[in-house]
Computed example of a mutant assay.
Amino acid sequence: MTDILVLGGGYTGVVAAIRVARQTRRIGGKVTLVNASPRFTERLRLHQTAAGERLEDHELADVLAGSGVELEVGRVAGLDLESQRVRLDGGRELGYDKLIYALGTVTDASVPGVAEHAYTYDGHAEAVRLSRHLDTLTEGTVVVAGGGLTGVESATELAETRPHLRVVLLTRGRPGSMMGRGARAYLDGALERLGVEVRAGADITKVLPDGVELGDGELIHSDATLWTTGTRGLPVAAGSGLSVDARDRIVVDAALRSVSHPDVYAVGDAAAVSQRFGVLHGTCQGGIPTGLHAADSLAATLHGKAPKPFRFGYVHQPVSLGRNDAVIQFTRRDDSPRRWYLKGRAAVVYKETVSSSPIQTYRLLKRGLVPVWAFALTAGLA
């Protein structure tokens, strides 16, 4: 019997757990997934939750049903890498032979006041808390900090569903700056149409209870501030002695094993995964392939085989612009924009397909199938 623990029940942790359970069941693999909540959170949809949309609930027990994976509900409090044990809140401990670390990241709260006064997307409960607060406002201002895709999706969603509120998007650069010229122009038009006030070149130095302070001393009033500017790994990784990068992500080798502790595999946002074009940034697009590959690497090792190196290429940058609009920027492997992009209703359908794909992927994996898109992303075909 080989005890395999998977820490984290997000997109990557679930896919890794289901895959490794199937790959090792004939050689005595016992897989346990540890998650702080019994609920599976669709992080791709948290901006919808914040805007007040009621989404389908997915219980992890239901998602894992039939996979052979056992669920342990508990928050990880510490790792003892020498004795190969995981400590949970409340004093419980779990031993392991192999570990897949998929605890993701949390909001980078290094700017003063973020932890105390800003709303974040660190979990479903946080998005619900923001939504309930906005329900109490008959007028006022919502500040969204960060002009990346999460910030743009949040600003447009909030502006569309709560037109009585002023929505201000603060960003150091241009919103959607990673996109090509055509897609950026379309995104700009959507922000304008929905009445989002964009303040480019804004450097937030402090978040206050009722506003934000900029580097030039300007104060912007806010009845709610949503922080979407950057993440970092949980302190439990570095605190346990795992080698981490400047953002506290676990540094891994080509097989997605920790460079300091080879019995630990790290996937998704929690891992610093290097490719020829650089280190992957945290997205579901890259996360699920890492979960699949880590599971296969671990299984290969247990079967006495050498694991293959991880290869990945980006395909797209999908962003919703409210419920009835979207733009999809297609990319090269290194995430730089191609000439082609999709907009309008066709992009809405595309984005919804992307957002719903993880649940469909889990169902396929339980049947021993891997979706074609996952093969493309990890086989260098993208």
Rank of each mutant, 00 (worst) to 15 (best):
Y362A: 06
V144M: 11
E116V: 08
T150F: 13
V251L: 10
A246W: 08
T161P: 00
V6A: 04
P163E: 05
L137T: 10
L81C: 08
D296L: 12
L60V: 02
G29S: 09
V34H: 01
G13E: 07
V34P: 01
Y265A: 13
T120R: 04
H133T: 07
N35C: 03
S67L: 05
H261V: 12
S154L: 12
A347P: 03
A376C: 08
R26H: 12
T161L: 14
G278F: 00
V372H: 11
T24Y: 08
S297F: 06
V212N: 03
L169M: 12
E160D: 08
V73H: 09
E218S: 15
P163R: 09
T353L: 12
V20N: 04
E126V: 08
R199E: 06
S222P: 02
T141W: 01
G10N: 06
L7N: 02
A376T: 11
R174L: 12
R333H: 12
F277Y: 15
K351Q: 06
A300I: 09
R367V: 05
L208P: 00
M178W: 07
W340M: 10
G287I: 07
G90C: 09
Q285I: 05
L44M: 14
H293C: 03
A200S: 15
H58N: 01
L364H: 11
T331G: 06
L44V: 14
A202L: 03
V354Q: 00
L60N: 02
L165V: 02
G287H: 07
